[in-house]
């Protein structure tokens, strides 16, 4: 099942930071990792991924370095200390959000009853 763009929009940076926190990765690898981990629910395209990567790098949440791979240059990203804090903050935010959404969807208590 694919998730609508609107729903996925706010969580893309969280997903990217999360997968990079486990291992230094390059763009294509990030896309594939997220696809696999989400069992194809999240399918990032390049138009979304690279601007986010570059923005996070500009905000010093990520650092990059170049390596030679398969005869060409490849850019790897790694999480910085600031990126780690950013990830923690976003995770907390997401947990609060998803818990609240779950509660509302579960209809724990109707207002005024």
């Amino acid at each position: 099942m694919k998730i609508s763009k609107e729903l996925a929009k706010g969580s893309t940076a969280l997903l990217v930071l999360s997968v990079i926190s486990k291992k230094d990765m390059y763009g294509y690898q990030i896309i594939k990792t997220i696809e696999m981990a989400s069992e194809d629910v999240f399918s990032l395209n390049e138009g979304t991924l690279y601007p986010i990567l570059h923005s996070l790098e500009a905000e010093k949440c990520l650092e990059s370095y170049w390596c030679e791979a398969e005869g060409r240059k490849r850019k790897y990203y790694k999480l910085t200390t600031k990126g780690l804090k950013e990830l923690a903050g976003r995770e907390q935010e997401w947990n609060t959000f998803s818990t609240a959404v779950t509660k509302v969807l579960g209809g724990v208590k109707l207002a005024g009853t």
Binding site: Y26, G27, A69, K73
Partner: peptide, 15 residues
């Protein structure tokens, strides 16, 4: 820099 990165990406897809 962006060009090199996207080239690597396209090549990965291509391969």
């Amino acid at each position: 820099s962006v060009r090199d990165e996207l080239y690597d990406h396209l090549m990965c897809r291509y391969e």
